[in-house]
Simulated scan of single mutants.
Amino acid sequence: MIDLIHVTKRFGATTAVDDISLSVAQGELCVLVGTSGCGKSTTLRMINRLIEHSDGEIHIDGQQIRAFREETLRRRMGYAIQSTGLFPHWTVARNIGLVPRLLKWPQARIRERVEELMTLLGLPVSEFADKYPRQLSGGQAQRVGVARALAADPDILLMDEPFGALDPITRETLQEELRALQGRLHKTIVFVTHDMDEALRLADRLVVMDQGRIKQQGHPLELLREPADAFVESLLGGEDRGLKEAALLPVSERMLPLSPRLLARERVAHDASLREALSIMLWRHAERLTVVDDEDLPIGELSLRRLVGAKAHE
């Protein structure tokens, strides 16, 4: 869906992005991560031509982006940013319907689409349609921003630090909602963040950038297990990489069938992460947990030895 081929961006004598190549498949959630000034936001903005690239080529669905008029290109892509960019004097419903109005959709279709997205993003129409941005919490405003980015049903969604200004609880909730939303809509998403935990939680493809170059890219587990160099290893958490990997793996991957012995008193859900299971063990001073299904029925067990990957005969 998106191809960057030897793309460079220079601002005067400064090279912000230096000869990068990247392909993002249709339906993939690609996360660009790195320290401040590494070129990740510049890369994102070159995709919708908010910033023009200096060298190389950028293709969208096989076509060079400079073959499109800028306005046409941007209307094909949703764009969500940290500050939301909502018009303060417009209602929530009017903000969400911006791009469909520019595309001259019929009013009935716009209204239907706005209501559909508000429902999808947990913003009851009767409660939020006529509110103004100043009347929203940070999390609600970000939901409106995402709804507006999705309003014209674009194939591509670009997101630049969209959850960066939110408190940790709201941020984690919206991350979970974005993954669930992606599971239903299968958009091609390029997401920029400086938060490694957020990057690991969201990414199908993780792209680590430094000083305008791509240092390594691949599935998050690949990078955690085999970082390309000391920089990537440090950015991924150094000695904490084991815990970060545990946060990506479900309990079901390591659990064993129920044994004849008594069930462990402490329980963990089958779809909880191994990191959550380890936390329960440490907090409850338990070396074994009973694994339960969605109905809270026992389906297996997880020992500490099994959790850390030991080949125990249990």
Score class of each variant (00 low, 15 high):
residue 6 H to C: 07
residue 6 H to L: 12
residue 7 V to H: 07
residue 11 F to T: 03
residue 15 T to Y: 07
residue 19 D to H: 06
residue 19 D to I: 08
residue 29 L to N: 09
residue 39 G to Q: 04
residue 48 N to V: 05
residue 50 L to D: 04
residue 52 E to D: 15
residue 55 D to F: 13
residue 56 G to M: 08
residue 58 I to Y: 00
residue 65 I to P: 13
residue 68 F to E: 08
residue 70 E to H: 05
residue 71 E to G: 11
residue 73 L to H: 02
residue 74 R to H: 12
residue 79 Y to V: 10
residue 80 A to W: 06
residue 81 I to W: 10
residue 93 A to L: 07
residue 94 R to E: 15
residue 94 R to N: 11
residue 99 V to N: 10
residue 101 R to E: 15
residue 101 R to F: 04
residue 111 R to K: 13
residue 115 E to D: 15
residue 119 T to A: 12
residue 119 T to Q: 09
residue 120 L to W: 04
residue 121 L to C: 08
residue 130 D to Q: 14
residue 139 G to L: 10
residue 141 A to H: 07
residue 142 Q to N: 06
residue 158 L to Q: 01
residue 164 G to I: 12
residue 166 L to A: 10
residue 167 D to N: 12
residue 169 I to T: 05
residue 173 T to M: 14
residue 180 A to I: 02
residue 193 T to L: 08
residue 207 V to D: 04
residue 208 V to D: 02
residue 209 M to S: 09
residue 210 D to V: 10
residue 212 G to R: 03
residue 214 I to A: 02
residue 216 Q to I: 06
residue 218 G to C: 11
residue 220 P to Q: 01
residue 220 P to S: 08
residue 223 L to G: 01
residue 228 A to F: 01
residue 231 F to C: 02
residue 233 E to G: 04
residue 238 G to C: 11
residue 240 D to P: 00
residue 243 L to G: 12
residue 245 E to R: 05
residue 249 L to N: 03
residue 254 R to M: 05
residue 254 R to Q: 11
residue 257 P to N: 10
residue 259 S to F: 02
residue 261 R to L: 09
residue 261 R to S: 11
residue 262 L to H: 12
residue 266 E to I: 02
residue 273 S to Y: 09
residue 275 R to P: 12
residue 275 R to E: 15
residue 281 M to D: 01
residue 283 W to N: 15
residue 285 H to V: 01
residue 285 H to S: 15
residue 287 E to Q: 14
residue 287 E to C: 04
residue 292 V to E: 14
residue 292 V to N: 08
residue 297 L to N: 14
residue 298 P to I: 02
residue 301 E to W: 11
residue 302 L to I: 09
residue 305 R to W: 05
residue 309 G to M: 13
residue 311 K to S: 13
residue 313 H to P: 11
